[in-house]
C-alpha cells in the first residue's frame, strides 16, 4: 500500500524550516534598516548563524527526500495542478539553497567572513569586492522576495486543498491532523 502521509522526519523538517525561514526573513528585513549599534552587529551575526543552520537543514531535508518519496498527490487532482505543485516545490528547494548561499557569498564579498556561532570559520569563496558585495545584496533580497511570494502561493494552495477540495493534502503534512475520507 502506498504511503498516504509524510514521514515524521519530513514533517518535523518541514515545520522547523518554515519557522526558521519566517524568523530569518523578518530578522533580515528588520536588522538591515537599523542604525549601526552593537545590537545590529549581534543581530547580523545571529541572522548569519541561523541562515547557515537553515542551509544545513535543507541539505538534510533533501537527503531525506531523496530516500523517501513523498506520498502521491490525490488522484482527483488535474494534471496541470500536479505539475504546478511539483514545480513549486522544486523552486522552493532551489531557493532554500540559493538564499543562504547568496548570503554567505555576499558576506565574503563585503569583507566579512562568516564564523558559525563565532566558532567555526567558513571559507571565504569570494575576495572582498565592494561592487560584487552590493550586487549580491540585491540578489539575496530579490531571492528572498521571490521566496516570500512563492510561500504565499504555497500556503494558498494548501488552504485551497483543505477548504475547497477537502482532500488530505494539508493534513498529511500536519503532525496532529488526519482527514478520514
Amino acid at each position: 500500500m502506498p504511503e498516504t502521509r509524510y514521514t515524521h522526519t519530513a514533517i518535523a523538517l518541514h515545520w522547523l524550516m518554515a519557522l526558521l525561514l519566517i524568523a530569518l526573513f523578518s530578522l533580515g528585513l528588520y536588522m538591515s534598516d537599523l542604525p549601526v549599534s552593537p545590537q545590529k552587529l549581534k543581530l547580523y551575526s545571529w541572522h548569519k548563524w541561523a541562515g547557515v543552520s537553515a542551509f544545513l537543514l535543507v541539505l538534510l531535508r533533501l537527503a531525506w527526500r531523496i530516500g523517501h518519496r513523498p506520498p502521491d498527490l490525490p488522484a482527483a487532482m488535474p494534471g496541470w495542478q500536479k505539475t504546478a505543485a511539483q514545480g513549486l516545490h522544486h523552486l522552493l528547494y532551489l531557493l532554500m539553497i540559493a538564499i543562504p548561499l547568496s548570503g554567505w557569498l555576499m558576506s565574503s564579498a563585503k569583507g566579512f567572513q562568516t564564523v558559525y556561532f563565532g566558532i567555526i570559520p567558513l571559507p571565504d569563496l569570494l575576495q572582498k569586492n565592494k561592487e560584487l558585495g552590493e550586487l549580491l545584496e540585491l540578489v539575496h533580497s530579490s531571492l528572498n522576495f521571490t521566496l516570500a511570494g512563492l510561500v504565499v502561493a504555497h500556503i494558498a494552495a494548501a488552504l485551497k486543498h483543505h477548504l475547497l477540495d477537502r482532500d488530505e493534502v494539508l493534513a498529511r503534512m500536519l503532525p496532529f491532523l488526519t482527514r478520514n475520507r
Binding site: 552587529l41 547580523y44 569583507g111 566579512f112 567572513q113 562568516t114 564564523v115 563565532g118
Partner: peptide, 8 residues
C-alpha cells in the same frame, strides 16, 4: 574583531 570575526 567583531562578534568573533576578524576584520581588516
Amino acid at each position: 574583531k567583531q562578534m568573533g570575526v576578524p576584520i581588516d
